[in-house]
């Protein structure tokens, strides 16, 4: 099968299988949540921006929020033969790019995105196998749908495979 790379923009998601690679560029406070099912080689990636739909006005895009985005992704992956109880996950992103003295809640959105993602995954019974989160730097990630290997690239903070 030919390797396909699917790009996932802010507040978007993608699913793939086999040799598909899902990529998202320049994650800052956003979090890339990657799910995979090793038995059927199906993977999914959602680029979430905010922690929880109920807290915000816009209800049109499920992929924007950790709670609705992860649930949406699980549903889409099940249509490709994955099963929620077999899913594993990896997380990347959730940085705090700018810091101000007397940090406001708003500025700590990266951390809140990570916490919300962990909480939702726990609710759904999906183990977190690895994560590369926090810090004050951006990340580009590439996720292999088969095997679930996640490559994290940064500017000046190294490249990691988790």
């Amino acid at each position: 099968m030919k390797k396909r790379i699917k790009q996932v923009g802010m507040a978007q998601y993608a699913v793939g299988w086999g040799d598909d690679v899902l990529r998202t560029l320049g994650l800052g406070s956003c979090v890339g949540v990657c799910l995979y099912d090793l038995q059927v080689n199906v993977g999914g990636l959602v680029h979430i921006m905010l922690p929880e739909m109920a807290l915000y006005q816009d209800k049109s895009t499920e992929a924007k929020y950790a709670d609705t985005g992860i649930k949406l992704l699980v549903g889409e992956m099940e249509r490709l033969g994955a099963r929620q109880e077999r899913l594993l996950s990896k997380l990347a992103g959730g940085a705090q790019m700018f810091s101000f003295p007397g940090q406001s809640e708003v500025m700590r959105i990266g951390e809140r995105n990570v916490l919300a993602s962990r909480r939702v995954l726990q609710e759904l019974g999906i183990p977190i196998v690895a994560e590369h989160t926090g810090g004050n730097f951006g990340r580009t990630i590439e996720f292999a749908c088969t095997g679930g290997e996640l490559e994290v690239r940064t500017i000046g903070h190294g490249t990691f495979v988790i």
């Binding site: 802010m10 320049g26 800052g28 406070s29 915000y56 895009t61 790019m97 730097f137």
Partner: peptide, 19 residues
């Protein structure tokens, strides 16, 4: 840093209202 990462925080507040 990467443009995408720098923009996140600025776009976040809009993201709460719209796509």
């Amino acid at each position: 840093d990467m443009a995408g990462a720098i923009l996140d925080i600025a776009l976040m507040q809009l993201g709460a209202y719209s796509d």
